[in-house]
């Protein structure tokens, strides 16, 4: 890694008063938020269950082993904070209140 690349990025929690937390490039955002005093939703902690989903407003993350999101959910901007590690500074909306577009009733959707 080149020396001018920071080992941590700034992640802004939009709906927690725009709190800014420093997150290591190889640290799950959930862990950093907890250490900073923000208890966010968590369950399986391995990327398989969607409980920790948050919505990305800006930025990029890497999500090793994150399998819980389908294409629609990813396209809507959802990431899994238990596995998501920042690749750059990010702005995210967290908690169940960010889950408005995460779930849909499958019988309410026209199928092609």
């Amino acid at each position: 890694m080149a020396e001018d690349v920071p080992a941590t990025y700034r992640v802004t929690l939009r709906n927690r008063g725009d709190a800014v937390i420093e997150v290591g490039a190889d640290e799950p955002i959930y862990d950093a938020a907890l250490a900073a005093g923000y208890q966010l939703p968590i369950a399986c902690a391995y990327g398989g269950c969607i409980t920790c989903a948050a919505r990305m407003i800006a930025g990029k993350v890497r999500q090793p082993k994150g399998t819980a999101l389908n294409r629609r959910q990813s396209q809507a901007g959802y990431i899994l904070l238990c596995v998501a590690r920042p690749k750059e500074d990010c702005v995210i909306e967290v908690g169940v209140e960010s889950h408005g577009d995460l779930y849909q009733n499958p019988f309410a959707v026209k199928r092609g």
């Binding site: 399986c44 409980t51 819980a68 389908n70 995460l102 499958p106």
Partner: peptide, 8 residues
Amino acid sequence: PNTFMPGF
């Protein structure tokens, strides 16, 4: 679990 936990 990776199938049913995120939703149906």
